[in-house]
Nucleic acid binder design. Structure first.
Lengths: 218, 218
DNA sequence: AGGTTCAGAAATTTCGACAATATGAAAAAT
DNA sequence: ATTTTTCATATTGTCGAAATTTCTGAACCT
């Protein structure tokens, strides 16, 4: 779920990185927490070197901040960070959507419809029982947004979007815990977005996606 | 205070990463070269673990590809990669310029003018003696583009631009060695860009920057 | 000839222990 | 009160080595 698509083979380093990534996203490791290698080893296992490598990885991804001679800490999560991530996500995903609409074929549309089908089920479930289906919903949402980008033809843009989405997850899950997410509006936006995409209505699709991300962080 | 303060403190890992980064950019480590830890240690020094960490860093930056259980290789550099990087750079830098023109004050303009002054000197030098002043020119060019982005207010956008510029450097220096860079045109574009920026002519500035990047990779 | 199998070599990944260095805070001195 | 010194703690880097995986190439079979 929190893995990266790069290579499916799992090394210890990647496993550790994934666990820490998850715990940061879920808020179990709050922003600015000092990440002491020895403590982490007690929690997750692994050797000191493997952990350094894992944290180095996360630091380039943006979830961890590394300072020379002062170790690692969970990246801070300020209002400015949220705004930066949101603004950028809107721009990047719209760019991806625009390119994808130029290159995407029917199979691309099909993949989006399929992902949206899963997502709408998750949306129904999460409206009924927010706490129980939050993760399922977040994953379906990730998949949906990823499918849209998939046909843009730019691996670097896709990777950047994944990074931003990963960074935004912390804020999204926090908002979710506080019941600050308007699922109904998000659901409507997703449905209309799919409609605009299959209708090849470029302008409308871009506007919906942009407003959707800026408005709800979803 | 504002952006992420990249601590200039040098650890062994960062030094190693910097050296490898440079040698990849300069083509001394050609694309797809296998990066065997033991060989690298003989060349640069450092311990095996430090090198693993350095290469992990570079792999997230995009200059090195890591495959589980199969070690590290210099990232391949195909025509598709060049096109991807160029397209993205144009979009990202234009976005940065647009935001910077909204937020940038007179000091921002001053920094650009200063950087352009240095750059134009380097451009004069590189026209006379391409091989001798290539690096100076590339560095001045980097600084110039970085200054433009500086006022955009998005640390993540700035970092992404730096990554893309770093990735494009390989292609740029290769083109330079083959004498395929049109310095005169690039110089004109830079000069006109500065003029449009200080005149606050948003539309013209964006068009010049976009055409400039797409046209010359500079 | 062409392909397969399999043992040995080489490389990667991981781990533990230890030394060197830097940081942060308490203690001492001015 | 401010500065300096000291010291415990944490980070960083090195060495050595074991476990695992991949690569290589020779022998074998069809």
């Amino acid at each position: 779920m929190f893995g990266r698509a790069k290579s499916d083979a799992a090394t210890v380093v990647r496993l550790l990185a994934e666990q820490v990534r998850r715990d940061i996203s879920f808020g179990e490791l709050p922003p600015d927490t000092k990440l002491k290698i020895d403590d982490l080893r007690g929690r997750y296992g692994g050797s000191a070197h493997s952990f350094r490598e894992a944290l180095t990885l996360l630091s380039v991804e943006g979830l961890v901040e590394a300072t020379a001679q002062r170790g690692f800490r969970v990246a801070s999560a300020t209002q400015a960070d949220l705004e930066d991530i949101t603004r950028l996500r809107a721009e990047i995903e719209c760019l991806g959507l625009e390119w994808a609409m130029q290159r995407g074929d029917v199979r691309w549309e099909g993949a989006i419809i399929a992902a949206h089908h899963t997502l709408s089920k998750a949306e129904d479930a999460v409206v009924e029982d927010p706490d129980g289906h939050a993760l399922e919903w977040d994953e379906a949402n990730r998949e949906f947004h990823a499918r849209i980008m998939a046909a843009c033809g730019s691996p670097r843009l896709i990777e950047f979007q994944e990074q931003l989405f990963q960074q935004s997850r912390r804020f999204r899950l926090a908002a979710l815990r506080e019941g600050k997410i308007d699922y109904a509006r998000s659901r409507d936006a997703h449905a209309e977005l799919v409609k605009a995409i299959v209708a090849r209505d470029r302008k409308t699709a871009l506007k919906i996606l942009s407003d959707h991300i800026r408005g709800s962080l979803v």
